Simulated assay, not measured.
Amino acid sequence: MNFYRAVRAVADASGAGPVDWAAVAESAKAATAPGDLDLSSDEVESYQSDVRAARDRIRSVGGLDFDLPETIEVQHRHHWIDANIETFERILADLDTGVEFLPGVVRSVNTGSMAISISFLANNVLGQYDPLLLSPDTGNAHALYFVNPNIERVADRLAVDLPRFRRWIAFHEVTHAAEFGSAPWLANHLEDCLEDVVDDLSSGRFDRADFKQVDVTMTAVEGYAELLMDRTFDDEYDDLRRKLEERRRGGNPLTQLMRHLLGLGRKRRQYERGKDFFDAVADAEDLQTASLVWERKENLPTDSELDDAEKWLARMGV
């Protein structure tokens, strides 16, 4: 890590936009150790076989029809940074801050904030299903990443068996592939929601309804993934979930502050609230009933239905 180079990259931020994304990449990588990616062919194959097992189990038990990305990427932290900066840049491409006073200073502040955020996430993300929102690729573009240094570190810190922990993470990420694959409308819906939020911010306003729609959709996405993960995983997982939840809630004061600033507390709430909703649906009916949410956009639970599964079931005619 080279913190001087990280700061220098931010100070030298340039360009016409509100964020210098090349400087974000340079600064974030300078502040982040890439981690070990010296894997044997058997270790790489273990990731592939875990993903295939998750796909087969989810198709069978969940009754969902979906495909996986052609390539399963086992990454170190710098690889993850590069992939996700591309995503952030696409999503925020149309953001116009409208700031005319000291634009260079504002650009440096924005660039530094993004670099700090992405560096923190790169050190903590374990796996990621990326639907490549707003990608110029008009085909069925999507990607699946595993950040090997983080998976190894967290398994060690939690004192859990690495192969079982890695397989559990694989099941979670493949559940997201199942959601987006079985609901072709979902990526477009999220893109529309994100574009509305960016338009709001560019206009200097905060539209609670637009933000709420993103939150409700992501609560459904995360909650269903938790349900499917629990119902399809082919090993014991109670200790893994308990220890990972303790990790999400723990950390030193700086880590807790970063989680707060990045809204990770809200993300944890999405996991918990969504899981409670889908558990209630599956317990009252079955997994196939829970999967009705992905048949069409109108089947997404509303904000109030997320706290009242019976209300959603009644609307679905169940």
Rank of each mutant, 00 (worst) to 15 (best):
D196S: 13
D196P: 10
D196M: 12
V198I: 09
D199R: 04
D199S: 00
D200C: 13
D200T: 07
L201C: 02
L201S: 03
L201G: 03
L201A: 02
L201F: 06
S202H: 05
S202M: 05
S202Y: 06
S202E: 05
S202Q: 06
S203L: 14
S203C: 13
S203V: 11
S203N: 15
S203D: 15
G204D: 15
G204K: 15
R205T: 09
F206S: 12
D207V: 05
D207P: 03
D207Y: 02
R208T: 04
R208E: 07
R208I: 02
A209H: 05
A209W: 02
A209R: 06
F211Q: 07
F211L: 11
F211K: 05
F211A: 06
F211P: 05
K212T: 05
K212G: 09
Q213L: 08
D215G: 06
D215A: 08
V216Y: 06
T217M: 14
T217V: 13
T217I: 15
T217H: 13
M218S: 11
M218T: 13
M218D: 13
M218V: 10
M218I: 11
M218N: 13
T219E: 04
T219Q: 03
T219V: 03
T219A: 04
A220E: 00
V221P: 00
V221L: 02
V221T: 02
E222V: 05
E222Q: 09
G223R: 01
G223C: 01
G223D: 03
G223F: 04
G223S: 04
G223P: 02
G223V: 02
Y224F: 06
Y224E: 00
Y224W: 04
Y224D: 02
A225F: 00
A225E: 01
A225V: 00
E226L: 05
E226H: 03
E226P: 04
E226T: 04
L227S: 00
L227G: 00
L228N: 01
L228A: 01
L228D: 00
L228K: 00
M229S: 08
D230Q: 14
D230V: 12
R231P: 00
T232D: 03
T232M: 04
D234S: 12
D234C: 10
D234K: 07
D234P: 10
D235T: 12
Y237Q: 14
Y237V: 10
D238A: 11
D238W: 06
D239I: 14
D239F: 15
D239T: 14
L240K: 10
L240H: 10
L240A: 09
R241Y: 14
R241W: 15
R241F: 14
R242P: 09
R242H: 13
R242D: 13
R242E: 12
K243R: 14
K243A: 12
L244C: 15
E245T: 08
E245K: 13
E246D: 11
E246H: 09
E246A: 10
E246L: 09
E246Q: 12
R247I: 10
R247Y: 12
R247T: 09
R248G: 07
R248W: 06
R248S: 07
R248D: 05
R248Y: 07
R249W: 04
